[in-house]
C-alpha cells in the first residue's frame, strides 16, 4: 500500500528536502522562535555583506603596511576588526603566512569549519569528501587539480581546523605590483588564495617576471 505514485521518484528528491525545510521554518515561526524577516536578513547578509572581499581587504592592507601585517599575524581578530568591515564578530581567527619556502592550505577533515567572518560561506568543493579526505594526505595532488604546481623546495603545510579556531592564509604579494593601491591589490586576492589552493597573480607580471 506504500506504492503510490510518489515512489516513482528517487528516494530523496530535492523537493522533499525543501518541504522539510519549509515545514520546520513555519513551525518555528509559529512558536515565535524565528521570523521570516530574520531569515531573509541572514540570507541577504551573506549575499551582500560577508564574503571574500573582506579577507582580500585584510590581505591588501597587510601587504602595504608591515606593522598591520604583524598585528594580523599576532591577533587576527583584532586586526580585522580594526578595518571596520564585516558584520559578525570575527571570533578566534588565526592568519598564517605564506613565504618563499612554505605554502599553507586550510581544510577541515572532521566537518567543514571555515573562516566565515572573513571569507563568507565555503564553496561546495571545500565541503566535499574528496577535498576533506585528500587535502591532508596528498595536498600537492589536490593543488595540481586547482592548477597550482609547487616545486619540491616549497614545503606544504596543511592546517586541519579541528577546533573553534579559524584559519586564513596570507598569500605572498606578487612581483610587479609595486605602487599599486590597496584596492588594486585586493582585486588580486581571490577566495581560493586565502584558503591556500591558489596564489595571487599580477596580470602584467606573468610574462615579465619569468
Amino acid at each position: 500500500m506504500s506504492h503510490d505514485h510518489h515512489d516513482d521518484h528517487h528516494p530523496e528528491p530535492p523537493s522533499d528536502i525543501e518541504a522539510r525545510a519549509l515545514a520546520l521554518e513555519s513551525l518555528l515561526r509559529e512558536k515565535g522562535l524565528i521570523s521570516a524577516e530574520e531569515i531573509d536578513r541572514v540570507v541577504e547578509t551573506y549575499e551582500r555583506d560577508i564574503g571574500p572581499m573582506i579577507g582580500a581587504r585584510v590581505v591588501a592592507r597587510a601587504w602595504l603596511d608591515p606593522e598591520y601585517r604583524q598585528r594580523l599575524l599576532t591577533d587576527a581578530a583584532a586586526a580585522v576588526a580594526e578595518l571596520g568591515i564585516g558584520a559578525p564578530p570575527v571570533g578566534d581567527l588565526v592568519v598564517i603566512e605564506n613565504g618563499p619556502g612554505v605554502h599553507n592550505m586550510v581544510v577541515c577533515t572532521l566537518c567543514s569549519c571555515y573562516p566565515w567572518a572573513v571569507l563568507g560561506l565555503p564553496p561546495s568543493w571545500y565541503k566535499s569528501p574528496a577535498y576533506r579526505s585528500r587535502a591532508v594526505r596528498e595536498p600537492r595532488e589536490v593543488l595540481r587539480e586547482f592548477g597550482l604546481e609547487l616545486p619540491e623546495r616549497v614545503r606544504v603545510n596543511v592546517w586541519d581546523s579541528s577546533s573553534d579556531l579559524r584559519y586564513m592564509v596570507l598569500p605572498e604579494r606578487p612581483a610587479g605590483t609595486e605602487g599599486w593601491s590597496e584596492e588594486e591589490l585586493a582585486a588580486l586576492v581571490s577566495r581560493d588564495c586565502m584558503i591556500g589552493v591558489a596564489r595571487p597573480q599580477a596580470p602584467a607580471a606573468t610574462g615579465a617576471a619569468g
Partner: peptide
Amino acid sequence: WEGRVLAI
C-alpha cells in the same frame, strides 16, 4: 531552502 536552513 539552503539559505533558510542556514538561517534557522
